[in-house]
C-alpha cells in the first residue's frame, strides 16, 4: 500500500509566508488592482475593467519584447548549462587547485549587476575598450551601439561570463556528492567515459541541474540591469527585453494601468514556464530513480 501524504508540515513555512506576503504578495495584489484602473497620479483611480489587458494583448510591442526575451533565455540556457557541466567535469577533484578554481569561479558572481554592465559597456567600446579596440584592429566590424547582431553577441557573452560559474559550481557540488563506489563499479564493467557521464554523473547531477536551469531561466527571463547599462535596449529596440520595456512603460510614460496588465502577463508566463520545467525535471528524476 502506498503511503499517504501528510500536509501538516506546511504550517512550518508560515513565518516565510508572512515575509513573502509583505515583500511579494501584497505588492502583486496592488499590481492586480492597478491593472483594472487608470490613474493620472495624485492617488486618484478610475475603473477601466479589462481594457488594458485587451490593449496589451493586441500590442505588437509586447509580443516583440516577449519574442526577444524567449530567444535570449533560450540561447542563455543552451550555452550556460552544457558549458557549466563541462567546466564542472574538468575541475580538479582534490588538492590546492580546488580552492583556487572555486574562488576564481565565484568572482563574477560577486560583482553587482550594474557594475557588470559598466565593465562590458567599456570593454566593448571601439575607442577605449580592450575588446572593441582589438576587434577593430584585426578588421572585425564590431559596434554594439549601431549593429543589433553585435549588441546581442555582447549581452549574451556578458551573461555567459557572469553566470556560467553558478551552473558550474552547482554541477560541481552534484558531482562531488557521487560516492566512489559508483565509479569503481563502472571501472569493473569497463564503462566508457560517455557511459559514466550518461548513466552515473548526469542522473546524480539532475537535482542540482534542475535548480541551475530554473535559476538561470528565471534570472535571464527577468534580466534588466546588464542590457540596460550596455545597450539601453538599443539599437532601436533590438535588445529591449520585457523588463526594460515594462519599466519604460511604467516609469517613463507613467502608464501604470497598461504596465500593470503587462506585469501580470509577464508573471503568469514565468510561472507557467517554471512550473513546466520543474514538473518535467522532477518526473525525469523519478524515472531515472
Amino acid at each position: 500500500m502506498e503511503k499517504t501524504v501528510n500536509q501538516k508540515a506546511w504550517f512550518l513555512v508560515l513565518p516565510v509566508l508572512v515575509l513573502v506576503a509583505f515583500s511579494a504578495v501584497i505588492p502583486l495584489m496592488t499590481v492586480v488592482n492597478y491593472s483594472v484602473q487608470d490613474t493620472f497620479g495624485n492617488n486618484q483611480f478610475f475603473w477601466a475593467g479589462l481594457e488594458w489587458f485587451k490593449e496589451m494583448l493586441r500590442d505588437d510591442r509586447m509580443w516583440d519584447a516577449l519574442g526577444r526575451q524567449l530567444m535570449f533565455s533560450g540561447i542563455i540556457l543552451l550555452i550556460q548549462i552544457p558549458l557549466g557541466v563541462f567546466i564542472a567535469l574538468n575541475m580538479p577533484k582534490s588538492g590546492f587547485w580546488v580552492s583556487f578554481c572555486l574562488v576564481v569561479m565565484s568572482l563574477p558572481l560577486l560583482i553587482p549587476w550594474n557594475v557588470v554592465g559598466t565593465i562590458w559597456q567599456i570593454f566593448g567600446r571601439v575607442d577605449i575598450g580592450l575588446l572593441g579596440h582589438t576587434l577593430a584592429a584585426i578588421g572585425v566590424d564590431y559596434n554594439y551601439t549601431s549593429d543589433p547582431f553585435a549588441a546581442w553577441v555582447t549581452i549574451i557573452v556578458m551573461d555567459v561570463w557572469h553566470w556560467t560559474s553558478l551552473v558550474a559550481l552547482l554541477a560541481y557540488a552534484g558531482l562531488k556528492s557521487i560516492p566512489d563506489a559508483y565509479y569503481q563499479a563502472a571501472k569493473i564493467d569497463q564503462a566508457s567515459r560517455w557511459a559514466v557521464f550518461r548513466y552515473i554523473e548526469l542522473p546524480k547531477m539532475m537535482g542540482v541541474l534542475m535548480i541551475a536551469i530554473l535559476l538561470r531561466f528565471m534570472d535571464s527571463f527577468m534580466i534588466y540591469t546588464e542590457p540596460f547599462v550596455v545597450t539601453g535596449g538599443g539599437p532601436g529596440s533590438t535588445t529591449t527585453m520585457l523588463s526594460i520595456d515594462l519599466v519604460k512603460m511604467a516609469l517613463g510614460q507613467f502608464d501604470l494601468g497598461p504596465a500593470a496588465a503587462f506585469s501580470i502577463m509577464y508573471f503568469l508566463t514565468i510561472l507557467l514556464i517554471s512550473w513546466v520545467f520543474y514538473t518535467v525535471m522532477t518526473n525525469l528524476e523519478k524515472r531515472e530513480g
Binding site: 499517504t4 501524504v5 501528510n6 500536509q7 501538516k8 506546511w10 501584497i26 495584489m29 496592488t30 492586480v32 488592482n33 492597478y34 483594472v36 484602473q37 490613474t39 492617488n43 483611480f45 475603473w47
Partner: peptide, 30 residues
C-alpha cells in the same frame, strides 16, 4: 495606497477561500 476595487477584492477572496478550503481538505482527508 493599494487602490482596491470591489471586483479585485472579490477575485482575491475567491482565491483565498479556495486555498483555505483545499488546505482544510488536505488536512482532514490526506
Amino acid at each position: 495606497w493599494m487602490a482596491w476595487t470591489w471586483p479585485t477584492a472579490i477575485f482575491f477572496m475567491v482565491i483565498a477561500s479556495l486555498l483555505i478550503t483545499f488546505t482544510i481538505l488536505a488536512i482532514k482527508f490526506p
